[in-house]
Design a protein around this nucleic acid. Structure first.
Lengths: 141, 141
DNA sequence: CAATGTGATGTTATAAGATTACATCCTATG
DNA sequence: CATAGGATGTAATCTTATAACATCACATTG
């Protein structure tokens, strides 16, 4: 096996296709989660018409680690780490009022989830951790 | 304020309506998560015809703590605690192969999520923690 | 009893999220 | 050139969830 068998997220960067760039661009400009259909609405001017065009781009972007999917919102958000180097995001803090999303990295949590999974008899594959509430600004208002 | 203003989940039990009982019954017999539409299919013989009848029952059952919603599956599962006394389920271990679901209670995790939320500037309301992987049986097979 | 309020129900239609199936196009590589 | 793989375009469909509106059952109270 040579280096070119490495997964994309192991590499410095990945060349995005036109559709992938468009979708990522919309998410980056938005500073918050968007549904696939909301992304589509933003991109009709650029010639995208079908949900599948968005979902295909999102699939790749998630695979590359440039976009995260928020399961509890059925929505997607751009990764907040500039070059998307290995960052180990493991949880999200979501403001239910203003929709701001903060990525959380925490090795202790990661370890604890592994431990809990083991205790529950589960060989952990992926974990979904989404914390929901009100951000400081919204709580103050 | 008198005692009768207490929330249902503070009480010993709640009288379920016909539809709520039917929906809970299906979930309890199934030993695994079901989508609202799968529940509906099971209950057509009993006269239920519309998704909304299921969703309304599910809303109440979730409110009463007798059913949990699994965000990453868009599905629902009966609470595994018999009388549904206060149990503090905070996470779920989900086998992606056989769909078995194990409820997890862990005070340390609860505290850590509170802590992380605080660090992220979030006043925590609810948390979604769903661990996905393969259960021991499925991993062995 | 009549009037009223509240919560549950029934029904139709539709919104929102996601995938299947199939045809086509581009492009690197032999 | 041939062609194989990945990316794209398009239509149709499937799954999940809610809106809108009418009605019913039952308890309270005037």
């Amino acid at each position: 096996m040579s280096d070119d068998t490495a997964h994309p997220h192991d590499q410095e960067a990945v060349d995005l296709t036109r559709n992938q760039s468009l979708v990522l661009g919309v998410l980056q400009q938005t500073h918050g989660p968007l549904s696939a259909y909301a992304i589509l609405d933003e991109l009709r001017d650029h010639g995208l018409r079908a949900p599948l065009q968005i979902y295909r781009a999102l699939d790749k972007l998630v695979e590359y680690g440039r976009v995260h999917r928020l399961e509890s919102l059925n929505a997607f958000v751009a990764c907040s780490h500039p070059g998307c180097e290995d960052h180990g995001t493991i949880a999200f803090a979501i403001c239910e009022s203003c929709r701001q999303v903060v990525e959380i990295t925490d090795h202790r949590l990661a370890g604890q989830l592994q431990l809990l999974a083991g205790e529950a008899g589960l060989r952990l594959n992926t974990s979904v951790v989404e914390l929901r509430g009100r951000c400081a600004q919204c709580a103050a208002a």
